[in-house]
Design a protein around this nucleic acid. Structure first.
Lengths: 202, 202
DNA sequence: ATGGTAATATGAACGATGTTCATTTAGTTT
DNA sequence: AAACTAAATGAACATCGTTCATATTACCAT
């Protein structure tokens, strides 16, 4: 069978991504394979390679969509609060909740490694940077005396910290039980850090 | 060829681990395979499975050794400093340096995932917990008014934070250049957090 | 209608992976 | 020397990512 013309390239692409996301969501990165995705959308492996460069490319596309969802959630959260401190804390909680609800997708974003020496494409790194920006702009009103560079660094430190809690929680290496404890940890990290950062000039 | 009796089980085990570590060190997790390890020590795949349950087991053993090296480095660092604050900051720097010097090994410890549902064995989780304990005991003298639980939580938050910086730095998702900038970030995170944690009662 | 062209999809093939286990081999014991 | 047993093998199986010569069919010009 060939030249069925059942679907356009873009349709196949979309179907493949949806099927792949279903696999990842259910079984994590290890549950994903080219043949499984192909079978799930009623095509063969070869077809997948007409639409994606390779599996890494496919995964990158999935991750892009995940980062977009996360970004949306964070934007919504920012819209809900006016107080700067409240905003930051809620941002952290949103991050944790997202990782908890979409664990496998979140893991795929941050644990998938490209072949040695290869860097993620610029558009991808941009999506990560965008997240840090959200933190930066939320941080600004809290530290009006600080230079832009200091704020940038503080945002990076703070968000890396939240990220680290997330990672260790997911890999069960923090012996805390349940999401709530993780939220507490996050709160501790953020509020103490912010008190230190805001409260003093050095 | 069979029954060579060239080496004892333990010798083969040691040889295999050494060879595997060489592979990981040079090419990361993706460079590791049962056949490659076997070839490197002059045995066949089958033999490897007489000594290890499976590849996950082998990797767990490598990771145990890595965690031991890291723990040693941290102990040394603690012995070098008396001032509590100095101790904590140096501990953070040691962690970053280790990850920078043994990147592939460090990655293998924290990014290797066991099959769905399977937890790391207790002895492994103990090695991770041991690291957190080091932070806890260093933190105690700085926060004499705090309860053990609060200190435990603070140590977890602090160390997760350092860990997060490490992760993002290694995956090149922090747009900072060089190890020194990462050290600066770590310093920022730790010193601000500690000022917040120590300086106030709530 | 018919033939030709080009787009579309296939699936066999390749080299790699983890894992198993019947079989072979070489020490050890009787 | 024969029997026994521990040690090591390597072929076999199912899976993986990736490629590409081939087959099929839609479309278009005649």
């Amino acid at each position: 069978m060939a030249r069925r013309n059942d679907h356009s390239r873009d349709e196949i692409r979309e179907m493949a991504l949806a099927a792949a996301e279903k696999l990842v969501s259910a079984q994590g990165a290890k549950g994903l394979s080219a043949r499984k995705v192909a079978a799930a959308i009623g095509y063969t492996v070869g077809t997948l390679y007409l639409v994606f460069d390779n599996l890494d490319d496919l995964i990158l596309q999935i991750n892009a969509r995940t980062l977009d969802r996360l970004h949306d959630r964070m934007l919504e959260e920012l819209a809900r609060h006016k107080d700067p401190m409240e905003r930051l804390l809620q941002l952290g909680h949103t991050y944790i909740s997202f990782a908890d609800e979409e664990t496998h997708h979140w893991e795929l974003v941050f644990e998938h490694r490209l072949p040695e020496g290869q860097q993620p494409p610029e558009w991808f790194r941009e999506k990560v940077a965008r997240m840090f920006s959200l933190v930066e702009t939320s941080l600004e009103p809290l530290a009006t005396t600080r230079s832009p560079d200091e704020i940038k660094q503080a945002a990076a430190a703070l968000w890396s910290g939240v990220h680290g809690i997330c990672i260790l929680a997911i890999s069960k290496q923090l012996d805390v039980a349940g999401v709530d404890s993780v939220q507490d940890l996050t709160h501790s990290l953020m509020s103490n850090y912010l008190r230190g950062f805001v409260g003093s000039n050095r």
